[in-house]
Design a binder for these strands. Structure first.
Lengths: 196, 196
DNA sequence: TGACAAAACTAACGGTTATTAGTTTTTATA
DNA sequence: TATAAAAACTAATAACCGTTAGTTTTGTCA
């Protein structure tokens, strides 16, 4: 069953990772078995090991792929020629975009990273801290420029990230159907609050 | 090792539940073993079954105890003679209070309810929906009274609950030390936003 | 078509899981 | 101090886990 050789190298592994992301999101990493994952792939469990090294490696791939993407976006946002409000808005919108378009992987990265084995777990946390620190820096600059209220930057970061990470989208996105409005509404709430 | 009979009835079970909550928060429900829980209690694993029915029963106790407490508070808030803004503020403050004072149990209820077996899982989700619906109703009334902006109530509920459920406090609470300020800052952000 | 490699298969492994059955120890009360 | 209940213990169970070794099937290209 050889594929197109060099071009599709890794394609089968990516399909496993995607299937695993959906499974891990629905049931949790530890509660998901390799046999169950294999069944979803229409294959016996040992066959998976022709493509991956271990169960933990799948979780590792998912978590760090997502972490890299968020850090990459953060880097671009910080290089943008724009005011700090625009930057924060761009970050929130990226989070929502990722949640809506890569729900399973983002959810797994946000909820199952605790199951990573050391030292991967610490490395992942380090990337997260790095991300939050850069986020915090943007808010500090915005306060200095008078764009934001004089809040504790760390708390603002915590509130925004917590809000945006925990959103359970499936129910809402189905009802709402109008994604741009959904995103705008959430962004507005986090930036402008509830009170007129 | 008989205790004071009737008075302390259930005390041993409660100690198991508390110990389990700390363990489940740190490692996740499925990744935690009964042997590990027993070790933390200074006991062999089978001894636990003199006090509890099953591992799943522990998770059930934790999740539904927390759900009851939140619904009880919601009921009281809705009966309060106050405007809707005050009500929302009271709800947010209760969430933060519970997070700070019953961190393990609240965290487990928020993150591990997926591991409940049917029909408990559906029942838990039903209680959650009930809670969110009552929350949504308060926001609708606030909009009608002109206290709030004309937002989608469901989205406001989702943003606030998502923010407040996901907060990872321990790091922050240790640094901050000043809990009243912490609570006020978070409440202010969720109600008044970031922009002056 | 024959050769080669990719990817599937079966069988089995040691280890861990939650849980039971039956027994012994501990402890409070009468 | 004798009694009875509460709560600990040891031993063992069947089920399931991730993973390996070795073999067979499948598909592609020369």
């Amino acid at each position: 069953m050889a594929r197109i050789r060099t071009i599709n190298k890794g394609t089968r592994r990516e399909l496993i990772n995607d299937t695993a992301a959906a499974l891990f999101r629905a049931k949790g990493f530890t509660a998901s078995s390799m046999r169950e994952l294999a069944e979803k792939m229409g294959v016996e469990a040992p066959s998976l090991y022709n493509h991956i090294g271990s169960k933990g490696e799948i979780l590792h791939s998912i978590c760090f792929k997502i972490a890299r993407e968020f850090l990459h976006n953060m880097k671009q946002v910080m290089q943008m020629p724009a005011n700090e409000l625009t930057r924060i808005e761009a970050i929130i919108r990226f989070h929502l975009f990722m949640m809506l378009n890569h729900y399973d992987e983002v959810f797994v990265a946000n909820h199952e990273w605790r199951q990573l084995e050391e030292p991967a777990r610490s490395e992942f946390l380090s990337l997260r801290n790095q991300y939050e620190q850069q986020f915090s820096q943007i808010i500090s600059q915005g306060i200095k420029a008078g764009e934001f209220k004089k809040v504790e930057p760390q708390i603002a970061v915590l509130v925004i990230l917590s809000a945006v990470r925990g959103l359970e989208f499936l129910n809402l996105a189905k009802k709402h159907r109008n994604t741009p409005n959904l995103t705008t509404d959430i962004t507005n709430h986090l930036l402008k609050g509830l009170i007129p």
